[in-house]
Simulated assay, not measured.
Amino acid sequence: MNAQETKSIIDELNTYYPGKGRVTIFEDEAIKGIVGRPITPKLPVYADPGTVPYVKMRGYKIQAFAGNDQRTSKNEAYRKQALINQAFPELETVIIFESPFWRLRVGNFRTREEAEEVLNEMRKVFPSFGKEMYIVPDEVKIPVDQPVN
């Protein structure tokens, strides 16, 4: 085994170190390929033209608007989206229509705590409709730190 290879936990436990006792573990060949492998599969990386590569995962968004009035909800969602985009241009905003509801969701947050910080800032900037904003679990886009090959 060269310096670049890492030992599995089983190999490490089976290694004899003088004065520290001896452990011997017998394992089935089928288990060798499983031990030490990451439990969760790697997430696929997406890269839209002209954007930063990202992964999709479960996270949180801020629901800034939800309405089902056929005459006004669509316009209200787009109006609030424009206000939020102007005040917080770094946050992604998405309008979702699932009949009969129009929803406006803001941001891509890994943790609820991150979402709560931004929600508090948004409530300060938009006191008129800040009380109707709340955090929802959703699929989010998280930027990848390194470039995609």
Rank of each mutant, 00 (worst) to 15 (best):
E116D: 09
N14S: 13
Y54D: 07
G19C: 02
E27V: 15
K20W: 08
R58W: 10
P53T: 06
V136Y: 09
V23D: 03
E132N: 12
K141P: 02
I25V: 14
Q81C: 03
Q86A: 11
M57T: 13
P53L: 01
N108T: 02
E114C: 04
P49T: 01
T93Q: 14
R110V: 11
D48Y: 02
R71E: 07
E113P: 08
T24P: 00
F129E: 06
L104V: 07
E76G: 06
G36W: 10
E29V: 13
P49A: 06
L43A: 14
E27A: 15
E139T: 09
E12M: 10
K141V: 00
G33S: 14
M1H: 09
E139I: 12
I31P: 07
N85P: 00
Q146Y: 14
F129Q: 04
E27L: 15
T40R: 14
R22Q: 15
W102R: 02
F26E: 12
G33Q: 14
Q146A: 10
F129G: 03
F97C: 00
F129A: 00
V148D: 01
T24S: 14
P143V: 05
E132Q: 12
R71C: 01
K32I: 08
V94D: 14
N85C: 04
E116A: 13
E113L: 12
V136H: 12
D69Q: 04
Q4V: 15
M57E: 13
K32H: 11
P53K: 02
A87P: 07
I34P: 02
K56Y: 00
E117G: 10
A115R: 13
L13K: 07
N14E: 15
F109W: 08
K131R: 12
P100G: 04
D69L: 06
E121C: 01
G50W: 03
S128T: 07
K32P: 06
I10W: 09
Y60S: 01
E29T: 02
M133Y: 02
E12C: 05
E29F: 13
A77V: 04
K124S: 08
K124I: 08
R71V: 00
S8T: 15
M133K: 04
E90G: 00
N2S: 12
Y46I: 09
K124L: 11
A115V: 05
P53R: 01
G33F: 12
W102P: 04
T24Q: 14
L91Q: 01
E116V: 05
I25H: 11
D48H: 05
Q4F: 15
V136D: 10
G21Y: 03
L83A: 11
L83G: 06
K141N: 05
D138C: 02
Y60N: 02
F65S: 10
P41S: 10
I62P: 06
V94H: 12
W102D: 05
G19H: 00
V148Y: 02
E29P: 11
I31N: 15
T6E: 15
R110W: 04
A82V: 10
V136K: 12
P137V: 09
P143R: 01
S73C: 01
G50K: 03
A115M: 07
A30V: 12
K131I: 00
E132A: 11
F101W: 14
I142K: 06
P143Y: 05
